[in-house]
Design a protein around this nucleic acid. Structure first.
Lengths: 199, 199
DNA sequence: ATATTAACCAAACAAATGTTTGTTTAACGG
DNA sequence: CCGTTAAACAAACATTTGTTTGGTTAATAT
């Protein structure tokens, strides 16, 4: 782990290095979210980042590398939000609700990275696909643990409750519009709908 | 409505006409499902249909027309299945469960058409997008009516229950694998999870 | 001052893209 | 038998695609 070293290094050379890398990734995330992977052009990303198409290859070796990088950052952000939200909460149902609220706030809050994770990955490249599915599974493991802690009858109840709540949350991206209920309020509705059925 | 006329016309000329049109549409549905719209090539569709790329334009004037046609057929099929499933059932909860079972069976039963409807539509063409959203809304209106008939406290409960159950069902496409529980069994699990919370 | 190098530009590349055009084939109707 | 026509082919079209290459600029290090 060299994060501390990077943060400590304030030398001019390091500050100049990888300066616009994040800008490129931001542009890629924006385009992938709006148009999908196949529907996005390297020229689209370049225009969004304010540079020429060829310049992208200084920062990333290929289009697919950009997709992987966006996925990794998206999973990192939403996982961080969820971990922070459940920290310090003991009651299992409250933990699940807090996690779901953070999940939906990150998804629907306008961030491009997390939404890219929800789009289905390209089917033509098996290696790329496997890498992206692996990333998402690693994140969703948190919800498996959260549901495991719930006071339910059997193990299958945990499973189907998790499938239901995560599915409903992820699908919200198709109908959610800002101005109505907040993501956190929607999460509360969802959890309460399921919590009532088991008491 | 000239369906009866078409069905009655068994003249050789009519039988020859539009013969391979459905084969082209089948190929398009298969490709769109597997690779998405932007990820599908007219050459992919042509190869799948067993003809040359240019020949597709005899049947459909553009790639986007193929997408609209697949959407229309997909909505038609799943709507037909749902309407047939709820016919003759009186109890509101049983009606919802039957509708959801038919919805999921059509989605997960291997058909290409219905699954294309779930994929998000291209964002670059507003007219095309509006047409596809209109088609899906027209279908989902059935579930609004089904939830409206449920014996619930208030109107918002109907709304959120519908959002939850449809979202969970549509998202099942990402994790469903044949061999486990049947789509109908999953639908029953989902409905029972929600039904319990309101009694 | 000079050499180095991160970052980008300018221009091209081959391949793939959606679509068009003119032609052929074969089944049908008169 | 012959004209018509549904249906497809063969070949190209202009454009767009992901990517490469070689040069340019300006900040940094020595």
């Amino acid at each position: 782990m060299d994060t501390a070293v990077e943060l400590a290094d304030r030398s001019p050379m390091t500050r100049r290095r990888n300066n616009r890398r994040s800008a490129v990734l931001d542009a890629a995330a924006r385009c992938f979210r709006r148009q999908g992977y196949a529907g996005t052009t390297m020229r689209d990303i370049a225009a969004d980042a304010g540079m020429l198409p060829g310049s992208l290859y200084y920062h990333y070796p290929a289009k697919s590398a950009l997709l992987v990088a966006v996925h990794e950052e998206g999973v990192r952000r939403i996982a961080e939000a969820v971990d922070l939200a459940v920290a310090g909460i003991a009651d299992p149902w409250q933990r699940l609700e807090a996690a779901l609220a953070a999940h939906m706030e990150t998804l629907l809050g306008g961030g491009d990275y997390a939404l890219v994770v929800l789009r289905d990955v390209p089917a033509d490249d098996p290696d790329l696909r496997a890498r992206l599915v692996e990333l998402r599974d690693e994140y969703e493991e948190r919800f498996r643990l959260l549901c495991q802690a719930l006071p339910l009858d059997d193990r299958s109840s945990q499973y189907w409750l998790r499938m239901m709540v995560l599915g409903a949350a992820n699908w919200s991206r198709t109908w959610y519009r800002p101005g109505g209920e907040t993501p956190a309020a929607i999460a509360r509705r969802f959890v309460h709908l399921l919590k009532g059925s088991t008491e």
